[in-house]
Design a protein around this nucleic acid. Structure first.
Lengths: 127, 127
DNA sequence: CACTTAGGTATCTTTTTGTATACTAGGTTT
DNA sequence: AAACCTAGTATACAAAAAGATACCTAAGTG
């Protein structure tokens, strides 16, 4: 076999967390967003989770946090230059992910959406 | 709302779980492995977790489970053809992951970033 | 003087994941 | 006959992640 597939865990570590993908999606799509704009765009997220996910992305230098020292506060989030470098990886994951969805539909049936795969997995694993 | 970076969640869904990466790594590296060989290769994993992770990968048609009907039981696991198609994505994740580690080292220094990534990664790579 | 605003924290509870340990089947070896 | 394989289950438990809710700040507004 070719090169060992190993350190993709690093990417996983960045992306791990229930809300990271959708947060990243919005920031990649919209460029720069305020905390409250992200909250609006992701209605079910709590402030705590949004803060947490953003802080973790910030630690990995994927997201930049710009604070305006005003009252009421204003904080803007955006993808860093380093973070933009992730887009090819995300795109590759996205593309393969799409084709995988098609494949799963062929295997298990068309009527199932992404969300319902979870439930079907539970049927199989008995959890 | 066009979607440049969105359904990479599908890949995440396959890879999610504490032991999936190392299981995949061994199967990609070794081709075909028995349940007990995987157990040996990943000493800290419990049977329950190994079974669970393999079943989930099997559901996604990434891993194939071949049962030999004999006593004592023999079951072999391998990457499916569909699963092999994942290797480019894993490779892309891996490559970017490596450069990200370097970047983190530059940002935080060698000790700090090593500390933030778990030893399991090193187990996999043998570093 | 109280109210509003934006971007958070601080606690506590619930849910999800992962771990530990014991048990099973049925043929083979001691 | 008892012990030993392998590839699992079953059950109980601990730890981690996520959710719910209340609270904080400090200037501007009515």
């Amino acid at each position: 076999m070719e090169e060992p597939h190993c350190k993709f865990e690093t990417v996983l570590e960045i992306l791990v967390g229930k809300w990271k993908p959708i947060v990243l999606f919005h920031l990649f799509s919209n460029g720069t967003m305020r905390f409250s704009e992200l909250q609006k765009a992701i209605p079910d997220i709590t402030k705590k989770m949004l803060t947490q996910q953003l802080r973790e992305l910030e630690y990995h230098d994927i997201v930049h946090r710009k604070i305006y020292h005003q009252i009421p506060p204003k904080v803007e989030y955006s993808i860093t230059e380093h973070g933009k470098g992730m887009s090819t990886v995300l795109q590759a994951m996205n593309d393969w992910g799409m084709s995988h969805l098609t494949h799963l539909n062929e295997l298990y049936g068309e009527e199932r959406s992404v969300e319902s795969f979870e439930g079907r997995l539970d049927e199989v694993t008995g959890n």
